[in-house]
Amino acid sequence: MPPTPTPSPTGQRFLTPAQTAEQIAANGERVLRQSMSRTIVLSLLAGFYIAFGAQLATMVTHDTIPIIGDGLTRFVAGSVFSLGLMLVVVCGAELFTGNSMLTKAALHGRIPWHKIAQNWVVVLLGNLVGSFFFAWLMFHSQLWESGQVAQRAIAIAEAKTELSFGAALIRGILCNWLVCLAVFMATAARDVTGKILACYVPIMAFVASGFEHSIANMYFIPTGLLLARLPGFESADLTWGGFMANIVPVTLGNIIGGVVFVALAYWFIYLRGSRIH
């Protein structure tokens, strides 16, 4: 991630599922060539890009529930949040959740397993730092002073930290199942319009459904924590312990969702038996 386009047959407007699976496996070879410094910068960018979508979702929905209700508010939030993956895919960045797809390259014999572990550690930390820094920027932008933005941001963070381990794990699985399907479809698309649409629908669906994305939560919860320190916005329910209690199960769920239900499933269907030695 991001996918590297390869020439498609004349007249073919998108890759077939089999071609897409092969393309994703081939794209995984970048971890063998990409420098550590480049991986770090790309992972920071992904943290910024997902945070852009997260703050936009907070901003545009801070006063919509009384007007259009909770269901349509979730739809609006998901629609604008999809900006984050669009930026990752079209502009290029290293996103931890999308990099669950690297396991397809390892199963196909294109990269060693230890390279996946190395990439995941670096990218997860880079995404974390990028998300934290963006939360700090938004806090000091004072944009939260408009309307009920601060209350909305705190409410989002509180709802996430109140989840049980099991609920957070399952919501994480369901989330990255859709995120990785979005990456799969964006890889299949041969033009920017197709890639944007491929990102939009699954991402809108996971946000509207209430699923949990680890990197987004690295923005949502710290933002709530920063705002909850201000007079008039105090919240005893928001703590860094609550942050970790959310991030750990959601991250594990994201790994399971992306690896098992997308990477492993499509490797089994299309690439099993054609392993590169």
Rank of each mutant, 00 (worst) to 15 (best):
L85W: 11
A182R: 02
F220I: 08
S274H: 15
V262W: 01
A106R: 12
L169W: 03
G11T: 12
N254F: 12
R38P: 02
V60R: 13
N99A: 09
I170M: 11
P17D: 09
K104I: 14
F75G: 08
P112I: 15
L230K: 15
R190N: 08
V179T: 03
L197D: 14
S8T: 14
E22R: 10
P202Y: 04
T187S: 01
A208E: 04
F268V: 05
A189K: 02
A189N: 02
M59P: 06
D70R: 12
E234Y: 12
A236H: 11
M218N: 01
A57Q: 12
Q34F: 02
G53K: 08
I67K: 15
W113C: 11
L95C: 05
G258P: 01
T20H: 02
V121Q: 02
L252T: 05
A93K: 00
P17C: 04
P9T: 13
S100A: 15
I116R: 06
T161N: 06
Y49M: 10
K115L: 10
N254E: 08
P202H: 05
I67F: 12
E234V: 14
A25H: 08
A155H: 12
A245K: 02
T10Y: 15
P66R: 08
G28C: 06
S214Y: 01
M218C: 08
G71T: 12
Q19N: 10
M36W: 09
G130L: 04
L95D: 01
M101W: 06
S43C: 04
V262E: 02
S209Y: 14
S274Q: 15
G242K: 10
T6I: 08
M1P: 00
V259W: 01
V259S: 06
I247L: 07
H114R: 11
A117N: 07
K104T: 11
S235F: 06
D63P: 12
I256A: 13
H108I: 10
A236W: 11
E234I: 13
D237K: 09
V259A: 06
T6M: 05
I276S: 11
W144L: 14
R190W: 05
L72N: 14
I276N: 09
P231V: 15
L85G: 06
G232S: 15
Q55A: 02
N127E: 03
F134E: 02
L95S: 05
I215D: 04
I255K: 00
Q55V: 14
D237C: 00
R38V: 04
G257K: 05
S214K: 01
T251G: 06
